[in-house]
């Protein structure tokens, strides 16, 4: 399974699960990254990190490391 860190610019994916052992997992869920939601990688910052995802009508920037805790298909 891929993670949100691996999808390409403009690509959409559906969240399958969040790695709950990741230290930021609670905050990631609080911001709306929950299983079943569609996300889109809208843009990347310089050096390809952090990534800006569209989720539930909001644009949220997270680091690649955090995106790797979001499993998608």
């Amino acid at each position: 399974m891929r993670t949100a860190a691996e999808i390409s610019n403009g690509e959409k994916a559906v969240i399958m699960g969040i790695d709950s052992t990741h230290p930021s997992s609670r905050r990631i869920i609080e911001l709306g990254f929950t299983p079943g939601q569609e996300i889109e990688l809208v843009t990347r910052s310089l050096f390809n990190d952090p990534l800006a995802f569209s989720i539930r009508g909001a644009l949220i920037a997270i680091r690649k490391k955090e995106a790797a805790s979001i499993q998608v298909i």
């Binding site: 230290p23 930021s24 990631i28 800006a52 949220i60 920037a61 997270i62 680091r63």
Partner: peptide, 11 residues
């Protein structure tokens, strides 16, 4: 501890 960057980009 673990570093993180999570920030909402408002419209």
């Amino acid at each position: 501890d673990d570093s993180s960057f999570i920030l909402e980009l408002p419209s």
